[in-house]
């Protein structure tokens, strides 16, 4: 255990949150991340019992989620405390794979809708240039958002997670919040 106190990606001890009409935005500071890449000729593992998904998709089981990020490469996410060494945990689950710690590298913003899919769909069309089918529930994508490279995970019809690099957390939050605010004004 460390006696150092972590900050959230947005720079405060507590996660940032806001509500904009039907939408709520919440910084998720308890998401541990590690990337997994297959070695040449290596078999595809099933860490935490998860089938690693194909392009444009994610799989979740309990508190662990696997997201396709590139050929032979996935990002795994799990609910953990900030000091947890999730990469070590994953390494044990996927022997023979290249594992890299990514927890601190990302800022995760969870966006929830109180009125179903529509507000999230409207929000997404202001943010990312992907057809709706690419981000229907169960789908995930890495794409550009306001000059940032992000992962967008459509957890369900009314829940969405957006991950952007942690150093640009403020810019990511601004982009998401401004878009949500404009939708609210229309609603």
């Amino acid at each position: 255990m460390t006696d150092l106190t972590p900050l959230c990606a947005l720079g405060a001890p507590e996660p940032r949150r806001t509500a904009r009409g039907a939408l709520s935005l919440t910084e998720n500071p308890d998401l541990a991340l590690a990337s997994l890449a297959l070695r040449a000729g290596g078999a595809q593992p099933a860490p935490f019992g998860l089938t690693l998904p194909g392009p444009g998709a994610f799989n979740a089981s309990g508190e662990v989620l696997a997201l396709w990020t590139g050929p032979g490469q996935w990002m795994l996410a799990a609910e953990r405390s900030p000091d947890a060494d999730f990469a070590a945990e994953l390494r044990a689950q996927a022997p023979g794979c290249s594992i890299t710690e990514q927890t601190g590298g990302w800022c995760c913003v969870e966006i929830a809708s109180a009125t179903g899919a529509a507000p999230l769909d409207r929000l997404l069309e202001k943010l990312v240039n992907l057809p709706p089918a690419a981000l229907c529930p169960g789908r995930a994508a890495r794409t550009g958002l306001h000059h940032l490279s992000v992962f967008v995970i459509r957890r369900s019809t009314d829940r969405l997670a957006v991950l952007g690099m942690s150093s640009a957390a403020g810019s990511l939050w601004h982009a998401l919040d401004a878009a949500a605010l404009r939708l609210e004004s229309f609603a």
């Binding site: 392009p55 396709w68 990020t69 590139g70 050929p71 490469q73 890495r142 794409t143 490279s149």
Partner: peptide, 11 residues
């Protein structure tokens, strides 16, 4: 020609 999927899967 070569294109890099920079804001995507890095292929």
């Amino acid at each position: 020609e070569l294109w890099f999927h920079e804001q995507g899967d890095r292929s």
